[in-house]
Design a protein around this nucleic acid. Structure first.
Length: 742
DNA sequence: AAAAAAG
């Protein structure tokens, strides 16, 4: 059935619990942001009628991808009942109860009979922007697929929904998803009437807006009043009974209560790992080897003044100890080890990928990717990865970390395969993934796959992406056909594990990209749970440009005697990025951004909140500076598309939240504007690292008000970046100078 | 504050 053939009536509204929008998952609707009064309006007299999508676009792929039935192919955990550890996670009464309405598995309709997600109503529709004449890009959300080289699984990386929508008025009025997206166009409310934007404005209706009744259905009316909603405790999943393997997510009562629950894995086959490191190999003994010889290196954190204590004297960790949770502060094992090996860029001269131990197929595919010779971080880590060691890798933004873990992972999978005597080349149906790469954002997961997939393909291995925001059936279908490397984000991976559709028990190599971020609150525990699902004693690779002791929680539990690599001399002097801080008046912010962004080259603007990002994009667009946004309030289709707009050069300005701060690579971004200053030095480093990549020149302009001056100075100090602070008003001569060279 | 989960 074509996905765009809408099932009559759609899904029942009750499936969309209004309290669980992804954007507002803190429970309860965000104040104001869902209010009807928040709807934006942009007078657009010349707006053409909305386009209709081409309906038959995905049908072929869809058919190919859809499994015949979902009932019989579940595999994995059923035959390993002892691995029921997913049920051991702490009871999460606050988890959304999406399982509630599901019938027992046996009763569930086959996948093919289900209404594909793509049929969901078109909640993401933003008329004002999409319908504007000059910007006819709305059919281009496949481009990310085109970018990929050979594709093992053509089905899994493309957002599908979006174009074949029912007219707005026809939309059923259910659920939070719509409300979330309804918020989206709304940030531009006050633009016409005010001389400066009022960001985050969630006020009620403003008089310049037309009545809205003719523009949108009254979604809010369908939402049950909060009091009508079942109490959270009542909404717990009920699939315990029909899903033995992963179902029992209640707290385990047969466990000693003293155990920390996230260590509580009822797996007989693996020695328990605890946060006390007594059972770990004795690393405290050997760390003395690395303690005290670091100050003479040309590393990036060598300025005097950082050596406050023995611990913080590490150049790896700018002084920020006071801000770390206490439980991390008292553990500097990783810290010490991280100092161990710094490769000098000069050491890499003349070294080839083959020298590092990669096979000819992999080397050839790297060459095709444009990586002819290894970058320092690659030269440093690849041999250790191939040797099977756990590795921590730190290389500045844009220094080639993806290949540093991707290429040897592929090579090693091949070697392991050969060792096991199984024949390569032929795709075995249903074979379990043997490598897992985790990333913090979907876009990054996609991007990693674009690099790793061709490498894997060159030796006959298959990758698939597992991330949220898109229908899962293609991902599941790929898994059923057999996959070697899973690349994805934590949420969907956990979800598929719970569903019994993803089995990580054979995963022998686990990679965490942006590992320090993956250890942040909110990410750490899912990541821990996922890693616990992987094979015992599996290899772990942690990479980040800002790898720091925040990863101790993972290192202590999962890594054994890791080798640690960084690249020496990666300081500002070696950087190709010019850092500027502009002291401005708050009211001038938009005007200054306009003046900075109004030029040929690609500009990436960072905003702190989704609302502000949206607002800014609209404002720039309105000022005839074509801009799109990227943030978590957009559906995945649009996220992918908007990023692609910048990549392809169709627009030159992207306004993003920190979803785009890490890892995202877009060629030739020559200007990064921080409309809101970051709070953390690491964020600054990652954001600014979107420019100046692979040796190219870039400029980072951070806009702050006077009141933030001191904080900004401290942040730059931590980041070891020197930048002049300059007072600027719109129209100043300096404004032109800033962008003149770009 | 943002991100990551809904067949």
């Amino acid at each position: 059935m074509p996905k765009n053939k809408k099932a009559a009536g759609g899904r029942p509204a009750k499936n969309f619990d209004p309290s669980y929008s992804r954007g507002g998952s803190k429970g309860g609707p965000k104040a104001g942001s869902r209010s009807p009064g928040h709807r934006g309006y942009k007078p657009e007299p010349d707006a053409p009628a909305r386009r209709t999508g081409d309906k038959a676009r995905w049908n072929a792929d869809e058919r190919a991808a859809r499994p015949a039935s979902s009932g019989g192919d579940r595999r994995g955990h059923g035959d390993r009942p002892e691995r029921g550890s997913y049920g051991d996670r702490p009871a999460r009464g606050d988890r959304p109860s999406y399982g509630n309405d599901r019938p027992a598995r046996g009763d569930r309709p086959a996948y093919g009979d289900r209404q594909p997600r793509g049929d969901r109503p078109a909640y993401g529709d933003r008329q004002q922007r999409d319908d504007r004449g000059p910007r006819s890009f709305d059919r281009d959300d496949r481009s990310s697929s085109r970018d990929r080289g050979p594709r093992a699984n053509a089905d899994s990386d493309r957002p599908s929904y979006g174009n074949d929508r029912p007219a707005r008025g026809d939309r059923p009025a259910h659920g939070d998803r719509q409300q979330r997206d309804d918020r989206r166009p709304s940030y531009g409310n006050d633009r016409p009437a005010r001389d400066r934007p009022s960001y985050n404005d969630d006020r009620g209706s403003r008089n310049e807006r037309p009545a809205r009744g003719d523009r949108r259905p009254a979604y809010n009316n369908d939402r049950p009043a909060p009091d009508d909603r079942p109490a959270r405790g009542d909404r717990r999943p009920s699939y315990n009974n029909d899903r033995p393997a992963y179902g029992d997510r209640e707290p385990r009562t047969d466990r000693s209560s003293g155990d920390r629950s996230f260590n509580d894995r009822s797996r007989d086959d693996r020695a328990p790992r605890r946060y006390d490191r007594d059972e770990r190999p004795a690393r405290r003994d050997d760390r003395s080897t690395y303690s005290n010889d670091r100050n003479d290196r040309g590393g990036s954190y060598s300025r005097p003044g950082f050596q406050k204590s023995e611990r913080s004297e590490s150049k790896f960790y700018p002084a920020k100890d006071s801000r770390k949770p206490a439980y991390l502060n008292n553990d500097d094992v990783v810290l010490e080890r991280l100092e161990a090996e710094a490769i000098q860029a000069a050491d890499v001269d003349g070294v080839t990928f083959a020298d590092l131990g990669l096979g000819t197929n992999v080397v050839r595919s790297l060459d095709a990717l444009g990586a002819a010779t290894p970058f320092p971080i690659q030269a440093a880590t690849i041999p250790d990865v191939l040797a099977g060691r756990d590795v921590l890798g730190r290389g500045k933004t844009g220094s080639g970390k993806t290949i540093a873990f991707g290429a040897p992972t592929v090579e090693r999978l091949m070697a392991m395969w050969a060792d096991s005597g199984k024949s390569g080349g032929k795709r075995q149906m249903g074979r379990k993934p043997r490598a897992l790469i985790l990333a913090p954002t979907r876009e990054l997961a996609l991007q990693i796959d674009r690099t790793v997939q061709p490498i894997a393909q060159s030796v006959g291995l298959f990758t698939t992406q597992i991330y949220g925001g898109v229908p899962q059936h293609r991902q599941v279908g790929a898994l059923q056909r057999g996959v070697d490397i899973v690349i994805g984000t934590p949420g969907r991976i956990e979800d598929l594990i719970e569903q019994g559709r993803l089995d990580l028990s054979e995963v022998a190599i686990t990679v965490l990209d942006e590992a320090d971020h993956m250890c942040d609150l909110g990410f750490l525990e899912p990541v821990q749970r996922i890693i616990r699902e992987t094979k015992d004693g599996g290899q772990k690779l942690l990479f980040s440009a800002t790898l720091d002791k925040g990863v101790a929680a993972l290192v202590d539990e999962f890594l054994v005697d890791p080798s640690v690599h960084e690249v020496a001399g990666e300081d500002q002097a070696s950087s190709t990025i010019d850092h500027r801080v502009l002291l401005i008046e708050q009211r001038d912010k938009l005007e200054i951004i306009k003046q900075l962004a109004d030029r040929e080259g690609k500009t990436l603007v960072f905003a702190r909140t989704r609302a502000f990002a949206e607002q800014l994009a609209e404002d720039l667009d309105y000022a005839d500076i074509p801009a799109v946004s990227l943030h978590g309030d957009l559906n995945q289709s649009r996220r992918t598309r908007n990023l692609q707009q910048l990549t392809s050069g169709r627009v030159s300005v992207l306004v993003a939240t920190d979803v785009a701060a890490r890892g995202i690579h877009v060629d030739d971004i020559d200007l990064v504007i921080q409309a809101d200053a970051p709070d953390e030095y690491k964020t600054y480093l990652h954001r600014s690292g979107r420019t100046g990549r692979a040796g190219k020149q870039g400029t980072v302009v951070t806009l702050i008000t006077r009141s933030r001056q001191r904080r900004m100075a401290e942040l730059l100090d931590r980041a070891e970046i020197e930048a002049d602070f300059e007072h600027v008003a719109p129209g100043d001569e300096l404004m032109g100078q800033l962008t003149a060279g770009l």
